[in-house]
Design a protein around this nucleic acid. Structure first.
Lengths: 148, 148
DNA sequence: TTTATCGTCATACTTTCGGGTGATTTTGCT
DNA sequence: AGCAAAATCACCCGAAAGTATGACGATAAA
């Protein structure tokens, strides 16, 4: 940028010098003032345009480029569906454990209850989700927005 | 753009007109040619710069804008992991069926093989995935990018 | 050609699941 | 206090799933 201004200044200086030399030799003598003015105007217009172009802040054209980013859906539990199937908190809790791939025994241990209890729960869960295997239950639950 | 050129032309015309009026009244009379030339130069430089700025080629700046889109990730199978666990095509095929929540019997029927065969396959799959239940196998597989 | 892998199937046994039934206790609400 | 819903547990049975082992043919690699 500074270099441009320097070049511009030098050009102007040289031009003015040339003009001063020229003006006394031809134009004044011929008294063609208009021609002289026109020449000056032309030259400086060209110079100005050139300089203006250089000076011009390049206009930014914002090109929005979409980049697909997988959105970590925070997972909002679909309470509506949860109610509509009439699942209790406890049952949902067990459903979560089932979704982890835990066996009834393991769930029973982690929740400190009998395995039979878990079986009762899972049975009811399957009934409410209208499935008959834990695998299907999980898929169904995910479809319904009950599980992430 | 065309409008700019038009405006520019009109400005030039007006300026020249003004200059012609002025030149005979003051400058010529005073014979201050240099001043006149300087004025013309100055005016046209300014005009040129202004015009040059307008003409300036616009520079495109690509601004990358991340947009979070809920997208169905097309799912690209992680071949690396598939090889690293040493799973065969057939085994992977069965794994997919398992992931659908199908029972061994159902898988056997859809693939037209014996249920025992499926059991053998699943056993090997579990072994390779280092799990011992189909539920866990699916989770493991998903973690490893073997399943969507 | 020999070896290794893969896919197929079978048999036997164990564990886990799911379905059904019934019972007792806890909890929340009126 | 009394009722309804939820949670707990048990027992049984059959089905499904998983474990272990062995076998046989096809095919690809060495």
């Amino acid at each position: 940028m500074k270099k441009d201004i320097l070049i511009y200044g030098i050009c102007c200086g040289l031009l003015i010098l040339v003009l001063r030399l020229v003006e006394y030799r031809f134009l004044i003598i011929d008294n063609k003032l208009e021609l002289y003015g026109g020449a000056v105007a032309l030259i400086f217009v060209v110079l100005g345009i050139w300089f203006g172009s250089k000076l011009a802040k390049k206009k930014e054209v914002i090109v929005v480029k979409e980049i697909k980013v997988k959105e970590d859906v925070p997972f909002i539990l679909n309470e509506e569906n949860l109610k509509s199937v009439g699942m209790s908190k406890r049952e949902y809790e067990i459903l979560e454990q089932v979704a982890k791939g835990l066996s009834n025994k393991e769930i029973a241990d982690t929740l400190s209850v009998s395995e039979n209890t878990i079986k009762t729960h899972t049975s009811r869960i399957f009934e409410k989700l209208n499935v008959n295997r834990r695998m299907q239950a999980i898929q169904r639950a995910k479809e319904m927005g009950l599980l992430p």
